[in-house]
Amino acid sequence: MRTEIRFSGFGGQGIILAAVIVGRAAVMYDNKHAVQTQVYGPEARGGASMSAVIIDDEPVLFPKVTSPDIYVIMSQEGFEKYGVSVTEGAVMLLDSTLVHSRPACRYIEIPATREARESLGRDIVANIIMLGALVAATGVVSREAIEKAILDSVPRGTEELNLRAMKKGFELAEQVKHG
């Protein structure tokens, strides 16, 4: 089954890295197929940046996202540029610290930036919290796979911090599910 995930936020939040990690988890550790793409260009720096990943059991043929099944939105501008066109059947994870609007589809509020700052002391891992929440809420890739892919991708010396962020993401998504 083909699953299309679109990530959006502002430059510097690690939007592209988040998509790369999910793709890597699917290909390297879940034995699936994936294609990751992104919007390049000056607007990706500072403005709304967007990246996407397609995960499929079969080889991915068309590499571009046409109608995402899952959105991960981490900024208000990102929502306005890439999140307003959601279809009804989609699901959106949004960083409720930074995104004020709410979409016309099922959505999950994750206070990723606040948690990153307050519980973990580092804003920078908000994207990893969102990744944890994404995996816990949707199961696009397995928890083991995302853990390994995060460890492959983050700078040496930050592994523990990032794993704590990932687990925080799991928790936050579970609270929403059960709450």
């Binding site: 290909v27 990751q36 793409t37 590499p63």
Partner: peptide, 10 residues
């Protein structure tokens, strides 16, 4: 082309 050059896959 830019699509093939910039996309990531296996």
């Amino acid at each position: 082309d830019e699509i093939i050059g910039h996309m990531r896959e296996k």
